[in-house]
């Protein structure tokens, strides 16, 4: 019997569309996070996200099945555009959101002041990784949960948890980059768009793929070739941090991170023991087939863990970027 027997952390799952949300709820999500169409959330992709009407319907669907909906308003308003974020907060509260996931201190101040009864979570985009930063957000805005950046080891998470008066949410599966969340401006140099204010790291209208006669796949962002995959090589996302470059260190090297996904299944017992109350799956940009598969697998893994068993979801590697996984910084600071 493991030390985690009996404890059941909340499984927080992504949804980019109403169908994705229903798939997550039906597959066993305790909570689903999703955002509105437009720049107010950090997954501002074409054809993705929820209209106001869809969000209200989705919340009703989730509540009828005992699941929560956490609305992400987790980008930083550009000067002069604050009204869009204010309206997103008001609409999410009116729709019955169980929590708002926010990062900008202006948006937090507005939500806490105008909707004092609304549960607020601090987005990973806030980049709050120290007890001091988290306590400040709790004191100023009454946040009930912090989503930790993917740059802490499990041992560091335990130390943070012991020093903060709020719940801890940690990513356990999905996309991972070598960055301080909410601070990364790497792709801005290639695209001219702001990851943190426009809500997208690699805007689709600046991404192109081209297969050459030799069968190589050339991946470009903003006109820059960021990778070339050989005919039999696994591909990755078109993000600057996953590209290969010629540098003084070597030719054609992954200098930041390789195409691979975070997978913390081996560390689940340690995370739970460290006091993490919610486990988050990344991937609002992914399909409902991904959501269904990953959520089902994690539901089974967590139930097995709560029953004192050992989770085993090795098959998830097929859904990983580059079809490879890593425990990232959670396992070791020597990750890269």
């Amino acid at each position: 019997m493991s030390a985690n027997a009996g404890f059941r952390p909340e499984l927080v799952c992504p949804a980019g569309t109403p169908a994705g949300l229903r798939a997550a709820v039906d597959a066993g999500a305790d909570a689903v996070y999703c955002g509105y169409v437009g720049p107010t959330n950090a997954r501002n992709f074409p054809g993705l996200n929820f209209t106001r009407e869809e969000m209200a319907e989705a919340i009703q669907y989730a509540h009828a099945r005992g699941a929560k909906v956490l609305v992400t308003i987790n980008s930083f308003p550009a000067a002069g555009r604050f009204e869009e974020w204010r309206k997103a907060v008001d609409d999410a509260v009116a729709a019955g959101a169980d929590a708002l996931i926010l990062c900008d201190i202006g948006v937090l101040e507005y939500a806490a002041g105008e909707h004092p009864g609304q549960r607020l979570h601090l987005s990973v985009q806030a980049g709050a990784s120290s007890p001091e930063a988290i306590r400040w957000h709790v004191r100023e805005f009454g946040i009930k949960r912090v989503v930790l950046p993917r740059i802490l080891t499990v041992a560091e998470i335990r130390r943070v948890q012991e020093q903060v008066p709020c719940e801890i949410e940690a990513f356990v599966f999905g996309n991972i980059g070598m960055m301080a969340e909410g601070r990364c401006a790497l792709s801005n140099y290639a695209t001219g768009c702001s990851t943190n204010m426009d809500g997208v790291c690699s805007p689709a209208d600046q991404v192109s793929y081209e297969k050459d006669e030799a069968g190589n796949l050339n991946s470009r962002l903003g006109g820059f070739t960021i990778d070339r995959y050989g005919p039999d090589e696994r591909a990755g996302y078109p993000t600057i941090c996953k590209g290969r470059y010629d540098t003084p260190v070597g030719r054609c090297k992954y200098v930041f991170e390789e195409p691979r996904s975070l997978n913390l299944v081996p560390l689940l017992p340690d995370l739970v023991a460290a006091g993490v109350t919610a486990l988050k799956i990344e991937g609002r940009q992914r399909s409902k087939a991904y959501v269904r598969a990953v959520v089902s697998a994690f539901r089974q893994a967590l139930d097995a863990l709560a029953a004192g068993g050992t989770p085993d979801i090795a098959a998830l590697s097929a859904l990983a970027e580059g079809q490879r996984t890593t425990t990232g910084a959670f396992g070791s600071k020597a990750w890269r």
Binding site: G16, T17, F45, P46, G47, L48, P203, A204, D205, V207, S208, Y209, E210, K211, L217, Y229, P231, D232, E233, R234, A235, G236, Y237, P259, Q285, R286, S287, A289, Y290, A293, A318, L319, A320, E321, G322, Q323
Partner: peptide, 26 residues
């Protein structure tokens, strides 16, 4: 099947206007 996974494994190839294909996929 997940389209990103099929793309990673090179089982599908997309070329041209990426914004349009992402919108159609979603």
């Amino acid at each position: 099947a997940d389209s990103d996974a099929l793309f990673f494994s090179r089982d599908i190839v997309v070329e041209g206007d990426t914004e349009a294909i992402v919108a159609l996929r979603n």
